[in-house]
Design a protein around this nucleic acid. Structure first.
Lengths: 205, 205
DNA sequence: TCGTTACGTTGGCACCGTCAACATGAGCGG
DNA sequence: CCGCTCATGTTGACGGTGCCAACGTAACGA
């Protein structure tokens, strides 16, 4: 899905790259998905992009900053997925949850980077902001659930979906379950037997 | 909580350490809690333990094997916590969930190592076994929930608690929520508005 | 046209994981 | 009690990594 070489950049390429920053983010995204966030290397990203091992430092002060940019990009993509899911005519909250798990299944490495705690949102405010914007839709949909304890209900829903996504990306589920999780069926089944306790929330009777 | 130096081992310590393997596991556990699983170094663990940088290789074929041993130890401790919680007279499943979140709150680094996917259970069967044994109690308690879809109910309960634990260790919760999560109150409140939909699952009312 | 400056390169440092060769001494057969 | 064996620990080396410092290149505005 992710081409590791964004632009080969032959031996007599121009001195200036053009958009090295974006190229590095894309190359790193590919590396993360291939090797996991822990073993991604600044130097290899540079190699793939076709620049010297120190060029990245003109755009990112540190390796973690590069990873933060990749994670930030991930949160933007997650928000786009949420927006698409929120347009669904049926159960909006379920659709958002399914989008969440689907995103994690499709980009396990990226998901682990975004939520693995290796980047540290405190040191990267832009990352925190992007994450907050991604979850705005989710909070909004959770708040209008009609529960008498909306805070707890929303948190429970988030925890349930977040946990399911983690079980997928950390490979804790059997193959068939992982498959069912990826396309949303598993979450649908879970929600049928396990959800807000308040009255009349059974969707699609 | 974890002393980083297990035994200073002065300059004229005996050639043989005695129980280097265990000492390395303990030192590494401390390092993980201090710096996170990603930035723990074999050489520093050796330094702390007071041996040369290559001594660990007599006990662990690779850095990942050392981390796997630490994670395995973590699963044993988690199982002990489960056993203690299962003795609770009240709601056993809730008590197990609270123990789960409490363990994560008390050992965030270790929890991230155990579930972060950086170790890979496939390559370390002992780790997989220890994890399975830790969850035996949880599965058992989940199965006797009396739901008409026990598989989905148990998975939902696991996902909810697992997700809540991840939200804690990955620092996604506000301070007061994290505190409430650590001592089990938050999970109790969540379960009151969000739980199995089937009737009569409240044990010992 | 020419200087400023953003962007990229070369070279070096300390640290890391890992391999190979060697040193030590605990434990056992005699 | 001696001496051998071999598990355990040490020294030294190699390539790779993140990052720093110094330098080259060319895009662009005065």
């Amino acid at each position: 899905m992710w081409a590791l070489s964004t632009s080969p950049r032959g031996p007599n390429a121009p001195f200036h790259h053009g958009d090295l920053r974006q190229a590095l983010v894309e190359a790193t995204t590919g590396l993360i998905e291939r090797d996991g966030p822990a073993s991604v290397s600044l130097r290899e990203a540079a190699r793939i992009t076709g620049v010297s091992h120190n060029a990245p430092y003109r755009h990112f002060p540190t390796r973690e900053a590069l990873l933060a940019a990749v994670a930030e990009n991930g949160f933007r993509r997650l928000r786009a997925a949420f927006e698409e899911a929120a347009a669904a005519p049926d159960d909006r909250l379920l659709a958002l949850g399914q989008a969440y798990v689907r995103f994690a299944s499709a980009n396990p490495g990226l998901f682990r980077l975004m939520f693995g705690g290796d980047v540290g949102k405190d040191a990267h405010p832009d990352l925190r902001r992007a994450a907050g914007e991604a979850f705005a839709l989710l909070r909004e949909a959770g708040a209008q659930g009609g529960s008498d304890a909306p805070r707890e209900a929303a948190l429970g829903a988030w925890a349930l979906v977040h946990g399911l996504a983690h079980l997928v990306v950390d490979d804790q589920l059997s193959d068939d379950l992982r498959e069912d999780a990826a396309d949303g069926r598993l979450l649908e089944r879970i929600v049928q037997v396990f959800g807000p306790r308040t009255a009349g929330v059974r969707r699609r009777p």
